[in-house]
């Protein structure tokens, strides 16, 4: 063994090279897979549809403000939205409105909406 001939070492070297090449290939593939994963997860995790839905519900609430006020259901409906959001959507939601203001000739209410689901926080003041 001591005086072993080392002519065959290049085969091992070839194997090593092929292995290294594979390794880099795999790394690159992994990266591209991660890109796709993050796009899909980003869409799933950012609650775009939830926020849109909440906004349209709050606008429905203000569309109906007069009749709800007359019948005394304003607080009830608001509590529905806040409580059900917390229970079923795991989101802290609250909203309130200020005194109506004149915005380019129309009397509009500043409505502030707050939404937080532990990952995404969303605040907005919209004249409605």
């Amino acid at each position: 063994m001591a005086c072993m001939n080392e002519d065959g070492q290049w085969i091992v070297l070839m194997g090593l090279l092929a292995a290294l090449g594979l390794f880099f290939l795999a790394l690159i593939i992994n990266q591209s897979a991660l890109v796709g994963q993050t796009t899909a997860e980003g869409v799933l995790e950012f609650p775009k549809n939830d926020i849109r839905d909440l906004r349209s519900e709050i606008f429905d609430y203000y569309d109906d403000y007069g009749p709800l006020q007359t019948l005394g259901y304003l607080d009830d409906v608001e509590e529905d939205i806040v409580r059900i959001s917390l229970e079923r959507k795991n989101a802290v939601v609250y909203f309130w409105d200020g005194p109506p203001q004149d915005v380019s000739g129309r009397l509009l209410r500043p409505v502030t909406i707050h939404y937080y689901n532990g990952v995404t926080e969303y605040d907005e003041t919209v004249y409605y």
Binding site: S32, V35, A40
Partner: peptide, 14 residues
């Protein structure tokens, strides 16, 4: 290995 990952398909969907 490549087919199993379908990295390009993921990009197309995005």
């Amino acid at each position: 290995l490549l087919a199993g990952l379908e990295s390009s398909g993921i990009d197309y969907d995005a």
